[in-house]
Structure formats: structure tokens, C-alpha cells
Design a protein around this nucleic acid. Structure first.
Length: 432
DNA sequence: ATTCATAATTAGACCCAACC
DNA sequence: GGTTGGGTCTAATTATGAAT
């Protein structure tokens, strides 16, 4: 059983330890290289931290033991509302996968989702049957993942129903719903599926708020509060540009006067709405249409004011995945970024007016500010890493294997003497 | 306001195999 | 043939700050 924070003496010492360490090793004197070396070592340790396999998850206030076996009797069609189906179709367009099973015997529908966002998987099971299974345990910054799988008759029926409402994957769903019996035709169906996944297929027209709002946005959307202003930005990123174009047309019709942009980054396309008023309107409509996974995020964003900007940004970051956990600027970081931008503006103005010497002075200042910013960001990253590793070890995570470059040897937290284990870990953290 | 670059997580695709 | 439970690999996605 993991030690509780309230009772653990190590936990009481954690903050003191951080501050004591910073006194012993004056952080302002550390070079960027030194920070990067320390971050690299801690990241190595972080990526080897694993939680015990998930035995259950909770959704809609109910506890579900894993695996949630496939239902033997399919749910009735009448049990699910049209809005639910549209939502699930939107979500499937965003995060679903049509995949032939081994030897092409059948075709399964799969939706994967991090375990804290498992409500949607329960919705799929309620609507179409199928089962919910654990996939990967939580390791490092990667959260544990669950997946809903519907195969056989359940899969076929789900594909047929979802296919009527999906805009991007309706062809794939149609193939799954009509999975052939003949082996030769199955091979060809598999090949067609593969080619569809690679191409930007023609998106179908019927968009609705439950589809976009809830489903598609829940799966593929992003709510942002930029570091330098109290505004909201909504983004939807997709490999298939055609879907985003349809979405843009839908928003134009639904939110007159709104401004959105589609730009390409790498191999994906992003639809971005950055006018705060429009974003608020869209968020309100999304909530009304049954936004589920990002409901808390949307509500937080709608409560944004100029006075609670930093708290809202931090709270929003807590509700999201860990992709950028250590890159999010704190209050001081945002202030530094704002300083850099204002000096940059002054420099450009001076350059435009021909005051080259003064502009050069600003350039020197700018370089200094940027260096300082980089250094401070690294220090914050390092400090967050230390705190995370410490608290995750206390919550029951264990180190899975020994790293070739890393001299530390830590035994599984579950099996080793707890205090000895913690002393080793904290000694290690102290040494960094 | 608009667009871009980037990092890291995660989704997706493709496996396999045991079992019912 | 379908269900369950895993695995791996990498492209896609999600999220960010920052440049223009």
C-alpha cells in the first residue's frame, strides 16, 4: 500500500530538502550545460518509474474492475440517443481505429483513451457492447491507457451505426460493417482499409454540435491560454485536412463573424480559433452539446479573467496530458517572456526609425534576457522533475530496470524495505 | 493576430497467442 | 471465429512557446 502523504516523514522533509539543496548549491551559478546534465539524468530515472498495473477505473462515479468483459447480449438501439451516437461518431473520427483482427478473420473497432478519461469508453460499451481492457500501465510521464474493443457482431453493428454519422472514417466503418466472408475478399478489404488510413479521404457533410463539439473536440481538440494574454485559443489538429475544412465551414455557419485559420505544421493540419469571444461562444455550445472529457477544461477556460489568469493556466495544465509538463511557463516565466517581447518591439521600432546604435543596445539586452530565460526555464524544469519523482515514488511508483548509464540501483518499491528504498532515492536526488 | 517550430506523449497499426 | 490480453514501433497528435 502506498504511503499516504500526510503520514510520510519523507514528505514533510521534501520541501525543506528542496530549499536546503538550493542553499547549498547556488542555482544562479549553474551553467546551462550543468542544468541540462542534471535534467537528463533525472529524466532517465523518471522514464523508469512505473505504477502497478491498473486493476480498475472509475467512470460516472462507478467503479469498474478490469477487464470489463464483452457483453454477451448486445444493447438495444433504442437505449442510445441520437446525440450520444453523434458524439461517439465524432469521437471515433478523432480517436478511433478500424483494425482487422489476426488472419483477417474479423474486423474490430478500437478506441484507446488514458484511464482518467475513461467515461467515453463506458459510453461506447453501453451503446454497442464490446469490452474494456487495460493496455499499458502508467510509466514515466505516459499515463495508463485503456481501450474499448468491439469485434464480431458487436463490432459490425457498431461500425454500421457509427458509419452513418462519422464524417472522416465512414468508409472504413462501412468496410468493417460489411466484413466479407471470403478469404480473398478479406485480403482486399484489408488493403483498402490500409490505403484509406493513408489518404486524405473526402469528408462527409453532416456536421452537428454533438459530433464536433463533444466527440471530435473531445478527441482532438485543445484549449489553450497563451502565456502573454488573458485570452483563450481553441485548436483542433488533424491529419486529414478535408475534415478541418468542413469543420471551418460548420463554424462559419454556426458562429457568424468568427475568424479561424487552418495552418500546416509538419504532417498535420491545425484549425485555430483565437478570438476570445468566439472561443467562449464555441465552448458554451460544446458544453451544451455534451462535451465530456474536456468539460472541466472548458468550464475553467470560461471562468478566465485577467486576475485569475495564472491560476487558470496552471489548473488547465493539470487537467491535460503530460506532453508539455515541464515546458509550461510559470508566472515568472510568463513575465520574462513578456519582457523579451517588449524589448523586441522596442528594437524593431528603433530599427524602423533608423536608430541603429540604439537598436544594437536593445539587441544586447535581448540576448541577455533570452539567455537568462533559458537558464531559469532549465532550473524550473529540474526542480519540477525532482518534486515529481519524489512524490510519485511516495505514491507507489517503482523503478522498473537499471539504466546502463545510470549507476543508481533501486529495487521495486513494493518489494524492498520502504525506508531503505526512499533513502536511496532521496540520496540520489540530493546528489543531483 | 497569425503562423510556425518543436518536444514528447499517445494513438494507431500491426503483431501474436491462448483460450472459449 | 471471436474474445482477451498482451507486445512493439513509430507516425500522429497534443501541447507548448515564440517568431513574425
Amino acid at each position: 500500500m502506498p504511503l499516504s502523504h500526510a503520514r510520510t516523514p519523507w514528505c514533510f522533509g521534501a520541501r525543506k530538502l528542496c530549499s536546503a539543496a538550493s542553499l547549498l548549491l547556488p542555482q544562479q551559478h549553474r551553467s546551462l550545460e550543468s542544468w541540462e546534465r542534471r535534467i537528463c539524468r533525472l529524466s532517465g530515472l523518471l522514464h523508469r518509474l512505473e505504477w502497478p498495473k491498473l486493476s480498475h477505473f472509475t467512470a460516472f462515479g462507478e467503479r469498474y474492475e478490469l477487464p470489463v468483459r464483452a457483453a454477451s447480449i448486445l444493447p438495444g438501439v433504442a437505449d442510445t440517443t441520437l446525440q450520444d451516437i453523434q458524439y461517439l461518431a465524432g469521437f471515433f473520427d478523432g480517436d478511433g481505429c478500424v483494425s482487422p483482427s489476426s488472419k483477417n478473420a474479423g474486423c474490430s473497432l478500437i478506441v484507446g483513451q488514458v484511464s482518467h478519461n475513461s467515461e467515453v469508453l463506458v459510453l461506447y460499451r453501453r451503446a454497442f457492447g464490446g469490452g474494456i481492457y487495460g493496455k499499458t500501465p502508467q510509466r514515466g510521464l505516459s499515463k495508463s491507457v485503456l481501450h474499448w474493443v468491439a469485434s464480431g457482431p458487436a463490432g459490425k453493428r457498431a461500425a454500421a451505426i457509427l458509419g452513418q454519422h462519422a464524417c472522416a472514417k465512414h468508409h472504413e466503418l462501412f468496410i468493417a460493417s460489411e466484413w466479407p466472408r471470403c478469404a480473398l475478399q478479406r485480403s482486399s478489404a484489408k488493403a483498402t482499409l490500409s490505403s484509406m488510413k493513408r489518404e486524405d479521404v473526402k469528408a462527409r457533410e453532416p456536421m452537428s454540435w454533438p459530433y464536433f463539439a463533444a466527440g471530435f473536440f473531445d478527441a482532438d481538440g485543445c484549449i489553450r491560454i497563451p502565456p502573454r494574454s488573458s485570452s483563450i485559443i481553441l485548436e483542433v489538429s488533424q491529419k486529414r485536412k478535408a475534415v478541418l475544412v468542413k469543420l471551418q465551414l460548420f463554424l462559419e455557419a454556426e458562429c457568424p463573424g468568427h475568424a479561424s485559420y487552418i495552418y500546416t505544421t509538419g504532417c498535420a493540419h491545425v484549425l485555430s480559433v483565437h478570438t476570445s469571444m468566439t472561443c467562449r461562444m464555441i465552448l458554451a455550445k460544446l458544453l451544451a452539446a455534451g462535451l465530456l472529457g474536456k468539460r472541466a477544461q472548458a468550464e475553467l477556460a470560461l471562468g478566465l479573467t485577467s486576475s485569475n489568469r495564472m491560476e487558470t493556466r496552471a489548473a488547465l495544465a493539470n487537467l491535460k496530458g503530460n506532453q508539455s509538463r515541464y515546458r509550461i511557463l510559470d508566472e515568472a516565466g510568463c513575465a520574462r517572456a513578456a519582457d523579451i517581447q517588449s524589448v523586441q518591439k522596442v528594437r524593431l521600432r528603433l530599427l524602423a526609425s533608423g536608430a541603429v546604435a540604439a537598436a544594437d543596445e536593445q539587441q544586447v539586452l535581448l540576448t541577455h534576457l533570452k539567455q537568462q530565460h533559458t537558464l531559469e526555464k532549465a532550473a524550473t524544469w529540474h526542480s519540477s522533475l525532482r518534486c515529481d519523482i519524489r512524490s510519485w515514488l511516495m505514491e507507489g511508483a517503482f523503478v522498473v530496470a537499471r539504466d546502463a548509464q545510470n549507476k543508481l540501483r533501486v529495487h521495486g518499491y513494493q518489494h524492498a524495505a520502504r525506508s531503505a528504498h526512499h533513502k536511496t532515492c532521496i540520496k540520489y536526488l540530493w546528489a543531483l
